Computed example of a mutant assay.
Amino acid sequence: MSWGGEQGVRISLSAVVMALRRNVLCVLTTEDADHALALPSGPFDPANDRTFERALRAFVTAQTGFGLGFVEQLYTFGDAGREAPRATPGPDRRREISVGYLALTDEAVDMEPPGARWTPVLDIFPWEDRRSGSPASLQMIMPALSQWAQDDPPRASRLETLLPVLQTGRWDEARVLERYELLYEAGLVAEAARDRDLTPELALGDRSMASDHRRILATGLGRLRSKLRYRPVLFELAPPTFTLSALQAAAEAVVGLKLHKQNFRRGVERTGLVEATGRVSTGTGGRPAELFRYTGAGPGDGQAPGLALPTLR
């Protein structure tokens, strides 16, 4: 592989850092040179950067002031036929490969560098928020997709295949990327219009992002949602002590679905992941609620399980 010149490849590193702020799932964002909403990111320099992860940590700290803890690699994006990210400017026009990482934190402190802030994730993907039923943006999306697929057999086949990821009764909260990819392909999100030099067709109330950053964020949100069911990742976003109502609200903020209160609590208790602290919270606005903490261990062989997510039907 060549790292420079006309045949070279430019590798970009991006971080999806997510936290809960007042029971709102947020992602750490900054701005690119054109003031577009962006993930903390930067180019990997093979001559000076020892590893991808070290370079990523340096970018995040320099751009936001935030120090990353544990990170995991999400995915490497490098589709040859995709318009975003575009080739680098200048005479070499190197193809760009994007490597995304996911990090979770319970320390969503205010950011000081200009442009750095915590942005609500569901403001970027409003169709992913089903806590109050089918969102208005999805009601606009479905007719537009039908129009897009009309009289075009390949598009119609693609839409039919992906209808389950859009339908209310068969909604899979983890398939965030597939939904975004379909909307991009159909030209219904701002990035698609930008990459094709067109005017956006719909006003979905969503927020676009620089380059392919919304695609990377969709991957991160889908990964987080799927991990909730088999790993106790929700506690990485939770404070040291919490009420079960607050824990449920946190889970709902992540999955974008309303959960059944009694079944959720029973599921949490069965995991053995929490224990009562013997103290109560008086800041709930109602009668005092018992405070719990994460024990860090599950039943059986000690492999901590995820949480059941019993949705309301």
Results as ranks from 00 to 15, higher is better:
residue 55 A to I: 09
residue 65 G to S: 06
residue 43 P to T: 09
residue 34 D to I: 02
residue 96 E to W: 09
residue 88 T to S: 11
residue 37 L to D: 01
residue 93 R to P: 10
residue 88 T to G: 07
residue 129 D to P: 04
residue 43 P to K: 01
residue 92 D to I: 01
residue 65 G to E: 04
residue 94 R to H: 06
residue 56 L to W: 02
residue 27 V to Q: 10
residue 133 G to L: 02
residue 104 L to E: 15
residue 94 R to P: 03
residue 107 E to R: 14
residue 30 T to V: 15
residue 63 Q to Y: 11
residue 96 E to A: 12
residue 66 F to S: 04
residue 87 A to Q: 14
residue 83 E to S: 08
residue 94 R to C: 01
residue 39 L to W: 03
residue 64 T to G: 06
residue 96 E to R: 11
residue 58 A to Q: 12
residue 49 D to Y: 10
residue 54 R to Y: 11
residue 136 A to G: 00
residue 58 A to S: 13
residue 94 R to N: 08
residue 114 P to L: 15
residue 129 D to F: 06
residue 123 D to C: 06
residue 52 F to K: 04
residue 55 A to H: 05
residue 33 A to F: 03
residue 66 F to M: 01
residue 26 C to K: 06
residue 71 V to S: 15
residue 100 G to K: 01
residue 111 M to I: 07
residue 44 F to Q: 09
residue 74 L to W: 10
residue 72 E to A: 08
residue 132 S to Y: 12
residue 49 D to K: 07
residue 110 D to S: 14
residue 109 V to E: 14
residue 66 F to K: 06
residue 122 L to F: 08
residue 60 V to P: 01
residue 120 P to W: 02
residue 27 V to P: 05
residue 44 F to C: 01
residue 40 P to G: 08
residue 64 T to I: 03
residue 127 W to G: 02
residue 96 E to Y: 02
residue 70 F to D: 09
residue 74 L to T: 09
residue 53 E to P: 08
residue 45 D to E: 15
residue 109 V to K: 13
residue 127 W to V: 02
residue 112 E to H: 12
residue 114 P to R: 14
residue 85 P to M: 12
residue 83 E to I: 09
residue 85 P to E: 00
residue 99 V to G: 12
residue 134 S to V: 14
residue 94 R to W: 07
residue 67 G to A: 15
residue 47 A to E: 14
residue 55 A to P: 07
residue 113 P to S: 14
residue 44 F to S: 10
residue 48 N to E: 11
